[in-house]
């Protein structure tokens, strides 16, 4: 069977594209708030004001004639990430992991001459990666250091954690692992592995690549069974706080774990996709309904996080020693 029955999907609570656009995005996300998340510089500023950790901003470029300044800006840094401010879906992101003898190296080891970086910056400025081709701004950020927890689960890139936050409550989470096929990018369309993460425990549940279930990382061959994300409570709490920060009722928070600085937010998305349901093998609809049924939204992100952990855990903690879980949390 290539097609699922709509009745079954509905009984699982799977939300489709039309339902997402109609019942979630247009109902809970006022359009005037979009620029807060579509513009990554604004998001970064907001996050800093809210005391949320974000990757350090090394510099920005706004005009074509600034491109000449690029070398100067990059001079003091060995590692950095170049991003379009209004790009979406990870488009136009260039990661440089090493600089040697005026040659820049991607995590894959490919050398990139300065002219290529300048061309890339120029393309971003002229709007190649922005929505609707509008002129864009370039931001240069510090590179995130891979947390050793993910060393065996990641190939030439930094995995990120997507958490769907509905009216301030984290309702579903997914770890996106880079692979050889995805060219070191955490983009599911390009072949990254999506791992559903239990909201209650931060443990891996299911994993998919290209929409099909997998049990091991395709490059490192490591099974996902024993994968638990550290700092889980902190991650959930950061994601929950994004609700106050942006006012968006349905958003996708992309977080990473930095080896040195711990959890931080790299991007917010006002139109998060639906692949997270496949990775979790669970539908969003019952969780959305549970939050919609609440009489009032708790103003404290901490207690919202606690509520979500109780409400949406998939591994009932009955047979798990509670201590084991709290030990890995250091929030």
């Amino acid at each position: 069977m290539f097609l699922a029955s709509a009745k079954k999907l509905r009984s699982f609570g799977i939300i489709g594209m039309n339902q997402r656009n109609f019942g979630l995005i247009s109902r809970y996300n006022p359009r005037h708030l979009y620029p807060l998340v579509d513009d990554k510089l604004k998001t970064k500023l907001l996050a800093q004001q809210a005391g949320i950790t974000v990757p350090k901003l090394l510099g920005t470029l706004q005009y074509q004639h600034d491109v000449r300044l690029l070398k100067e800006i990059l001079q003091p840094h060995d590692q950095f990430v170049i991003k379009p401010v209004k790009g979406s879906g990870g488009k136009g992101i260039l990661v440089i992991a090493e600089v040697e003898h005026n040659l820049y190296f991607k995590p894959s080891g490919d050398a990139v001459p300065l002219e290529d970086i300048e061309r890339h910056v120029s393309n971003i400025l002229s709007g190649l990666h922005s929505l609707g081709g509008k002129p864009d701004t370039v931001m240069i950020e510090s590179l995130i250091q891979l947390d050793p927890v993910f060393a065996d689960y990641s190939y030439e890139g930094i995995p990120d954690i997507r958490i769907i936050v509905f009216r301030g409550y984290p309702i579903m989470a997914m770890l996106r692992l880079t692979t050889h096929a995805s060219d070191g990018k955490a983009n599911l369309h390009q072949g990254a592995v999506g791992v559903g993460v239990d909201i209650g425990t931060g443990k891996a549940l299911h994993a998919v690549q290209y929409g099909n279930p997998v049990s091991r990382h395709p490059d490192t061959r490591k099974t996902f069974a024993e994968l638990t994300i550290p700092h889980w409570d902190k991650l959930l709490q950061l994601a929950a706080a994004c609700y106050e920060m942006t006012g968006l009722g349905y958003l996708g928070a992309d977080l990473v774990l930095d080896r040195d600085q711990g959890p931080m937010i790299i991007e917010l998305n006002a139109r998060p996709g639906l692949a997270i349901q496949v990775a979790n093998a669970a539908g969003l609809a019952p969780r959305v309904a549970a939050i919609e049924a609440l009489a009032a939204i708790d103003p404290d992100p901490q207690s919202r996080m606690e509520f979500s952990k109780r409400q949406f855990t998939q591994n009932p903690p009955a047979h798990q020693p509670r201590l084991a879980r709290t030990r890995s949390d250091d929030s």
Binding site: M1, F2, L3, A4, S5, A6, K8, L9, R10, S11, F12, G13, I14, G16, M17, N18, Q19, F22, G23, H206, V208, G211, N212, P213, Q277, V278, A281, A282, G283, P286, R287, A290, Q311, F312, T313, Q314
Partner: peptide, 25 residues
């Protein structure tokens, strides 16, 4: 007003059907 599944989504989510999805609260 149609908020049901698109035909291609029935394919996209077909791997979910085989697994026993227990819809949690």
């Amino acid at each position: 007003q149609y908020t049901g599944y698109r035909l291609t989504e029935l394919y996209r989510f077909h791997s979910l059907e085989r697994r026993d999805v227990s819809s949690q609260r």
